[in-house]
Design a protein around this nucleic acid. Structure first.
Lengths: 239, 239, 239, 239
DNA sequence: AATGAATGAGTATTCATTCAT
DNA sequence: AATGAATGAATACTCATTCAT
């Protein structure tokens, strides 16, 4: 019964969308299941037909975000890192990335910038869940599904699909912890923070959404470049 | 009766301290007044003797943080900006800061870096309240207490004590909105985020507290310098 | 699903009935929601499913009483006042009621007495809510729900359905404030007081319910007659 | 230490006065000890220095009212009933009062009217406590100190000082229950109700305090006369 | 798939009262 | 006589979750 299924999906999707909005506005704890039901236009009990608990709604939201980010990152790794290795333009030894020539570097840098742009736009599009991520991740004890799950994408084991993907192309691939920490700190965190606070800033400044986005993107890319250049992440061809 | 007073302060202070810890760990909504009472070793009703409501505890914490940050910033404005103006080493015209000579610049930059260090150490010391700030500020409807109050320290009117202080020394002082936004975005926000997530990072990495702090400070100051230099905030002697 | 509906009504009705009893026995403030739940044999939370608050239960009780009293009074106005006007047996000019003949007067007086009887019996049947009315009306700040709403039934504007009904039949109809005050004072108030204290008196005297009722009715009707006769309310045929 | 005592009395009196006001406005249950303390300008604990409990404040208020009413009634019994018996102008046999002549009756009636006037004025002066009396008396279970204590003044035993006083003058004195009931119903109750609702009525009508009072007094005395004449309470000289 | 009714375990807040000084 | 601090026992109200249909 595809029609039936569609309807279901629609209802379940409505519940998820409404939950996302409310969680991001008031926080998980302050959001009432009644409110979700009311805003989704469904009976409260129906929510428990689709989800085991209120917490499962949160998990669903967060998990699907992870999958998307993972997919985007994986796509980048595939298309630009793995491909370059296969093409003999890049060689990774421990912590040092050696490119075949300056064109390869330039090309790679362009792709990295594009990757940031895609990541930023994704974060902005899902800024509500980003908000949720930010403040739910700050709570100890209960939710282990917070922001720090993203750190898994930086793990050095084969459970991390990005790591696995690159490693399959270049078995030497690995890196230092500090690097990871920094990539996260000055990589993901500002990006996610920016997305999370985006609407607040929009309300504070006279800038348009686009201007705000570009302003951030420029500074973000500059900062990233600053940190990347001359360091252990990107290494100019070792001649 | 100073002894009496001290005792009182001790009890109220204990409630505040415990609340700060619990709010920062579990979030405001998930923290139970019972827990606060139990952890502070006082009767639950006593909490309501000192505070009108649970929310007022939060406000108290946040307000006192604001006051401290304001005081630190004001101290910097007084000692280093106003003083330089009075000494004829700095002249502010609209959005351009003109220094008398390179020594003045160097001196000012050194003080700015020191200011950042003080600010960072303060943020780290109060990282629990910073956590609270970060996630409570993400909730709509409570914005009034949230992170965005700090934006007031960047306002261009005389309600902002920092602006007022500098303006009294140099009536030409003003600046563009975008600059303000950026100072906040790449100024306060990473600092506060870093402090808020500090303990999480510590648990994730092998770095010591000190190393982590210095790592951040370097990158922070670099980023700030990057944004400051060659821009409209700091201008080399116009001679 | 009428059966379903009935069941619901039954539960909500049980809560109302129990509340009425407890409010009338112990007063609104001294009645605990827990007690209501326990006596009604329902879960405490269910009370809040049907009523927004404890106070709303009180309002519900009082409002439905008003409606009933209004309906009874309106019925009297329709059947006996309006009808007599239409039949040319009664003419109202300002404050003077002129009847066509002695039979008309006698008939009217008989109906008035019957009206009092119906009113008294209603008050006795609902004496619990009357108790509530009497003491809740004595509390400032809650006057809006209190006894004084009944005064509206004596208002001289078209928001008062009784006034409106008679006025539609006889546009000259109006009366003096003092009369209204007195009708209330020596009309509603003793009636309501009697009903409110009925059970207390019953416990104090050897009289049966019926004897007590008749005793009051006689004296009440005498008093009313005393006030009515020779005054501006009832006027013998002006011929 | 008379001065000390005076001060105390003043403070205690202030607590009583404030309590009376608050109890009469919001009811006993809804009045908070904190409010009493605040309005009386004293520390909450001091209230417990003067009174064992909140309830004792109520008792104090009510008891002193009883004493006053008893004193007024006793004074009337002494001056007018007992005196007439002693003067041979009145003879009471069971339920029948026989006066020596019409002058005696007229004189007695005049004194009764005066008694009502005094009683009414007392009730009006203490209308706040009357309010309290009215609604506290409606609550079963807890307060046995309500309005019905006044019924004691109508008891047929020597614990009732009025009965005792008259009986000492005329050993035949006694009466039927119904009479008592009626004296209370159409005697005390309207009087107390009138006093309790006085301020509400004042706010509702254009009449002055004096006019309102006289209006009630007239109707009250008329009603009383109506009930008294030709009945078993007052009997014209048996010739 | 959908709903109205029902519930257990909480949850912030209140309040009369007491204690120490 | 007077007070600031402290407390135990409520107390109205909430909320995620389940049940019956």
């Amino acid at each position: 019964m595809p029609f039936q299924k569609e309807e279901t999906e629609e209802t379940k999707g409505r519940i998820l969308k409404v939950s996302e909005l409310l969680f991001s506005e008031k926080g998980f704890d302050a959001t009432r299941v009644d409110q979700i039901a009311q805003n989704a236009g469904v009976n409260k009990a129906l929510i428990y037909y689709y989800f085991r608990s209120k917490e499962e709604i949160l998990n669903d939201l967060v998990q699907s975000l992870y999958k998307d980010i993972e997919a985007i990152s994986l796509d980048f790794a595939h298309k630009h890192v793995v491909q370059m290795i296969k093409d003999g333009l890049l060689d990774i030894k421990e912590d040092r990335w050696s490119f075949a020539n300056n064109d390869a570097i330039r090309s790679f840098m362009r792709n990295v910038q594009k990757f940031y742009r895609i990541l930023l736009d994704f974060a902005l599009e899902h800024r509500r869940t980003m908000r949720i991520l930010v403040f739910e991740s700050l709570k100890n004890g209960r939710h282990h599904n917070g922001l720090f799950h993203l750190l898994n994408l930086l793990n050095k084991d084969d459970k991390n699909p990005i790591f696995k993907t690159i490693r399959e192309a270049d078995p030497d691939y690995t890196y230092h912890d500090n690097t990871v920490l920094f990539k996260f700190f000055f990589g993901f965190l500002p990006l996610i923070s920016f997305a999370a606070y985006f609407d607040d800033y929009k309300a504070t400044t006279a800038l348009s959404e686009k201007e705000l986005r570009n302003l951030f993107l420029n500074s973000y890319q500059s900062t990233m470049s600053y940190w990347v250049s001359g360091r252990d992440i990107l290494i100019w061809p070792s001649v």
